[in-house]
Design a protein around this nucleic acid. Sequence first.
DNA 1: GGATTTATTTTGACTAATCAAAATAGCGCC
DNA 2: GGCGCTATTTTGATTAGTCAAAATAAATCC
Lengths: 220, 220
Amino acid sequence: MATIAVENYLKHVLLLSEGADDLVPMGELAAALDVVPGTATTMVKALAAEGLVSHRPRYGVRLTAEGRRVALGVLRRHRLIETFLVEVLKMDWTEVHAEAELLEHAISDAVLDRLDALLGHPATDPHGDPIPTRQGKLDSQVYATLATCVLAKPLRIVRITEQSGEFLQFAEERGLRPGASVRVADRNLAAGLLTLKMSGARTVAVSLAAAGSILVAPAD
Amino acid sequence: MATIAVENYLKHVLLLSEGADDLVPMGELAAALDVVPGTATTMVKALAAEGLVSHRPRYGVRLTAEGRRVALGVLRRHRLIETFLVEVLKMDWTEVHAEAELLEHAISDAVLDRLDALLGHPATDPHGDPIPTRQGKLDSQVYATLATCVLAKPLRIVRITEQSGEFLQFAEERGLRPGASVRVADRNLAAGLLTLKMSGARTVAVSLAAAGSILVAPAD
DNA sequence: GGATTTATTTTGACTAATCAAAATAGCGCC
DNA sequence: GGCGCTATTTTGATTAGTCAAAATAAATCC
Ligand SMILES: [Mn+2]
Ligand SMILES: [Mn+2]
Ligand SMILES: [Mn+2]
Ligand SMILES: [Mn+2]
């Protein structure tokens, strides 16, 4: 059985290799897991011996097919649990990530299937993150971000990729949540600042960094 | 923070000291936790150093006030989770114990409070086991068992103390679940066998050992 | 009361996961 | 083409939890 630590390593390798299906550098993995780099190296070598990742020393890690299978399972649990906490227990979508971080390692397939059915087999979690299917399919649709999208056109927020509670509260207070309508009125690269128009003519200022973690699609 | 192992040790000391508030012998604790006796000794000495139990070497363990507080928290989580799994997710009451065994260590107070409210602050779990309150009160009402109660009188099953899935399925198949009506038609100590009359004149045979883990109250 | 049985404790060893700090290997730079 | 910066790996040590097997204490039995 995969231990909690193993599950966390695999999940983070998966998350860090999103988009760039390149090797994940050790330093990034260590930072994501909040361990020192040496610890990550040791662990990754063990995972490689188990056949869960392949390790190019000095360059980085990548999931094997088996490692990816395990990681997708963890991610599915994580995101279904977040959805449950918001939809059924009515918790705040800005605070459920930390809860799911622990529960994702404790919930069985039997319970997960019931949860999934109760929620009506949702495709995304409260942050707009796609939920892997039971068969291990993960929607990898690419969206523009507020940092890269066209100006002035009406858009819909589809996903917020940053997970930290403070960030999400900042976003929530400004109406920046999945499903919300938004328009980029101005984007000043030099100043690193964007001006957004929300529904109801509300004006909101966000940093370029923040804008990069807010994914949008054309409002149709 | 208490680790998962620490929480399990404390919870089992609590369960094994139910009724007899005597010392819990090491052997019993080790067996309940499925570890060798030496492991239990080592761990108990560490818990004693933390002030969570008091250890009389060669005689047994007892919870301190602080250890009891922690143990009651774990037990509350366990029993509320079982109730949730049955009431909300419609799982079988004979299989939820194993699920709760893991989840009890992963759920936060914030989530637990929501669950408790959703369930309407239940007093007992699906097995009839009392749920400790948030303030740490545990109902300790003493009931007769089918092994010790009066013969012939109409009774109501209030609680089944044995947790194993096989046992509970055996009970379920015979209608022996909390709330059910029952009468002890015959009890033969020498043969170790009881004959029960269930509602609808159904006759059921159970061993004396099984009868001892089925608690009853007069039907009123 | 001494020998035997049984429960408990001790000892020595192991695994998983981690950190601090020293060693090393790529890489860009002049 | 060597020098130094930076990321990574190695080394040595630590903590939590466990087991196997030897040692010991308590209870039991003539
Ligand atoms: Mn996690
Ligand atoms: Mn999410
Ligand atoms: Mn447990
Ligand atoms: Mn129960």
